[in-house]
C-alpha cells in the first residue's frame, strides 16, 4: 500500500469531507493514529489480487425493482417532524444559508 504521510493538513481535509469539526487535540491524535492503523492493515499487500475482480455484494442478486403501492409508506406530518430540531410551516428549518444552490 502506498506510503502515505499523514499530516495535519490531510486530516483536516478528511474532516472537511466528513463535515466534522474536530478539535486540534483530535486532529493531532488522528494524525498520529491513522498511519498506525494503515500499517496494521498493510499485510493485505501480501495477497496477490492481479486479475481478480472485486466483489461488492455477496448475494448474487441482480435487477431488484420496486414492488409497492404509490404512497404506501407516506408519513404524516406529525411523524415527519417529531424528531426535527426546528420546523416552520411544514418545512424543516436550518440556519440561513447565504446562497441558493
Amino acid at each position: 500500500m502506498s506510503k502515505f504521510k499523514f499530516g495535519l493538513r490531510q486530516v483536516k481535509q478528511l474532516a472537511l469531507l466528513m463535515n466534522l469539526d474536530l478539535t486540534s487535540q483530535e486532529l493531532s491524535q488522528f494524525a498520529k493514529e491513522m498511519p498506525q492503523t494503515l500499517s496494521a492493515i498493510a499485510n493485505l499487500n501480501e495477497l496477490d489480487t492481479q486479475n481478480i475482480m472485486p466483489t461488492y455484494q455477496t448475494t448474487g442478486i441482480v435487477n431488484r425493482f420496486q414492488d409497492e403501492q404509490i404512497n404506501e409508506r407516506n408519513l404524516d406530518k406529525k411523524a415527519i417532524f417529531k424528531n426535527a430540531a426546528r420546523t416552520h410551516h411544514d418545512y424543516f428549518q436550518i440556519k440561513g444559508l447565504k446562497y441558493s444552490k
Binding site: 409508506r73 407516506n74 406530518k77
Partner: peptide, 25 residues
C-alpha cells in the same frame, strides 16, 4: 413513483413535505 421508494414523484404544487417516507427522508 420516486426513484427509490413508492412516494409520488409528482411533487409540483404539493404542500411541503407531504410526499415523503423513511426512504426519501
Amino acid at each position: 413513483s420516486k426513484m427509490f421508494c413508492g412516494c409520488s414523484g409528482n411533487y409540483f404544487g404539493q404542500s411541503p413535505n407531504s410526499q415523503v417516507c423513511p426512504v426519501c427522508l
